[in-house]
């Protein structure tokens, strides 16, 4: 028994120092104002000042749009990938871009979306004329969805691969057409994958701040941007922590709503 305790010390220390203490500190810090006095003012300000509530609402809205558009693109992709020969190899090719540094992928879009960039060249070529693409809401959503797509395809693909072909055959035998089979059999049975993907994308989308700065041009403010701003720019840690606590609460709500399966592979940068 004594021996067991010794080798566990580093791990338990880690739990104490890097899991419990920081989380406790962020809650503690949220009760202090910028001059270091104990106060409930941050929460009061958050709840009564329209700016914060509007920002939270916008952030949730953006995260929803990003997650749903990712889902819309990923589900058919996963479905089609699953029918291919060598599907594991194709899946590997879907996952490969996630190994490229996130910052570099975002940086690429600064070039692609610029005034004289390739996307505008293409638009001019097809006669649509050039547009301001960078620093718009649409470009922010596009880049965020681009980065998250593999994390949605993967869980859906896995739950499709687990689906027994006999289920589909049975459905066909019982006279269901392809749409009915999809709607009544395939979709319900792959819901765990969809939920896992939703969880893996929605929460990081709430907290993105790098893409909002580089691509959104500070027009889009998410909960993550607000936290970064309060911590590293205005140095109002109390308010930043308060928004952090809100983000943690939002995370629990999302996890509760999409419970029944843990996210495999977990966190996205």
């Amino acid at each position: 028994m004594h021996k067991k305790a010794t080798y566990l010390i580093p791990y338990l220390l880690w739990i104490g120092l890097f899991v419990i203490a920081p989380m406790a500190l962020i809650v503690y810090q949220s009760f202090f104002n910028i001059t270091g006095h104990f106060t409930l003012g941050n929460y009061e300000q958050y709840l009564t000042n329209g700016v914060y509530l509007k920002m939270t609402f916008n952030s949730i809205l953006y995260a929803l749009i990003i997650t749903l558009s990712t889902l819309l693109i990923s589900y058919p992709t996963a479905l089609l990938l699953n029918r291919l020969k060598n599907k594991q190899l194709w899946l590997l090719l879907i996952i490969l871009p996630t190994w490229i540094n996130l910052l570099l992928k975002t940086y690429a879009f600064i070039g692609l979306f610029s005034q004289n960039g390739s996307v505008n060249d293409f638009l001019r070529f097809v006669g649509l004329g050039s547009h301001q693409i960078l620093f718009t809401d649409a470009s922010f959503i596009f880049v965020a969805a681009y980065i998250e797509i593999p994390f949605m395809i993967l869980p859906i693909f896995n739950s499709l691969a687990e689906l027994k072909p006999s289920m589909i055959n049975a459905s066909r035998d019982l006279g269901a057409n392809s749409w009915q089979t999809f709607r009544r059999v395939i979709l319900p049975l792959t819901m765990p994958g969809v939920k896992a993907g939703f969880q893996a994308i929605f929460i990081p989308s709430l907290s993105l701040f790098m893409i909002t700065r580089l691509i959104g041009g500070n027009r889009v403010i998410t909960l993550g941007t607000a936290i970064e701003e309060h911590f590293l720019v205005t140095q109002n840690w109390g308010m930043g922590s308060t928004i952090g606590v809100i983000l943690i609460l939002a995370m629990f709500v999302v996890m509760y709503l999409t419970r029944d399966r843990k996210v495999k592979g977990g966190r996205i940068r």
Partner: peptide, 16 residues
Amino acid sequence: LMVSPDVIIGASFLIF
């Protein structure tokens, strides 16, 4: 720490 958003991990470590 697997499910927490990065911003939360970063901010809470900074406070710590």
